[in-house]
């Protein structure tokens, strides 16, 4: 058996340097990563990368910064298993391997010129943040922007400082809700879906994008359809185990579709036809 060195195999990593780590909550950390020679990742909002630590493995993590920021990118990582626990032990200056970006992200082109309704539940704010900040950086290209955010409680709410900034901007309608309120909480209490009826929108001019835990989607879609938003104007980001990122390994497959290549963002018109997709 002969061992041949190859390039462009799809499995090679780029050596990313962790420039900065911000502790968001006890469970979530934000990593800012710089590629060698200040190379730009060149991603679309909603895409993901495979993050690698040799000896531990790889995991798909969605990119949570806007591509308008070109010098580095950010990943929000929840401690949820063997790999992410190892990732949480790293310090600024350490290296991680990066493959990607992979997949089809949020529908930036159809969003342009339209009103935008963005809905994030729990950790779903991480990928959606890439789109929100992209819209803010290109604000004149989009119509009315509504952001609805749901979290378990105020402690688990991510990106607190940024949320306050979005809330303050007059060209964004920001609204959030928690499932369980602490005594000092002054905002909405209840499920995220409860916020949808209150949004004022022109259903034919609005495109809705949702990102959150799988259980959330059915309820969110029901509310959106009640508002009169056409099925084709609804986009969902689906979570699956994207192992190879190259549409081969089969772990993220939903029927004939590979979530890593054909998604993770899908139009509801397609999702609706696929049993078990949400």
């Amino acid at each position: 058996m002969e061992t041949i060195a190859i390039t462009h195999s799809g499995y090679e990593i780029k050596r990313g340097r962790i420039a900065e780590i911000t502790e968001l909550t006890e469970q979530e950390k934000l990593y800012r990563i710089v590629l060698p020679n200040d190379e730009t990742l060149d991603h679309d909002p909603g895409q993901f990368v495979e993050v690698s630590l040799f000896g531990v493995g790889e995991a798909p993590i969605s990119i949570c910064s806007s591509p308008t920021r070109r010098d580095s990118f950010e990943l929000c990582v929840r401690k949820a298993g063997r790999f992410t626990e190892a990732l949480h032990q790293l310090k600024a200056g350490d290296e991680v391997g990066i493959r990607g970006p992979f997949g089809v992200g949020f529908p930036v082109v159809p969003l342009e010129g339209n009103d935008v309704l963005l809905i994030a539940g729990g950790l779903g704010i991480a990928p959606l943040r890439s789109l929100i900040n992209f819209i803010i950086d290109n604000r004149r290209d989009f119509g009315k922007v509504d952001i609805l955010l749901g979290a378990r409680d105020s402690e688990s709410m991510l990106f607190g400082g940024e949320l306050a900034y979005w809330d303050k901007r007059i060209d964004l309608n920001f609204c959030c809700s928690v499932d369980q309120a602490a005594p000092d909480w002054q905002g909405n209490v209840g499920l995220l879906t409860g916020l949808i009826p209150g949004v004022t929108l022109d259903p034919l001019k609005t495109i809705a994008v949702a990102c959150g835990p799988p259980v959330m989607y059915r309820y969110v879609v029901d509310e959106l359809l009640k508002k009169g938003i056409p099925e084709t104007h609804i986009y969902l980001s689906l979570e699956r185990h994207m192992k190879c990122g190259l549409g081969k390994c089969g772990h993220c497959q939903i029927h004939d579709v590979y979530c890593c290549q054909d998604g993770p963002v899908f139009n509801y018109r397609w999702v609706k036809k696929i049993k078990g997709a949400i």
């Binding site: 058996m1 002969e2 061992t3 041949i4 060195a5 190859i6 390039t7 195999s9 499995y11 090679e12 990593i13 050596r15 690698s52 630590l53 040799f54 000896g55 290296e95 991680v96 391997g97």
Partner: peptide, 21 residues
């Protein structure tokens, strides 16, 4: 099947290889 050989002594170094005969 081997995809990569790595060495983390000086960061995340690797080489993609294919084993053939």
């Amino acid at each position: 099947e081997t995809l990569l050989k790595y060495d983390v002594a000086k960061g995340q170094q690797m080489e993609a290889v294919v084993e053939v005969e």
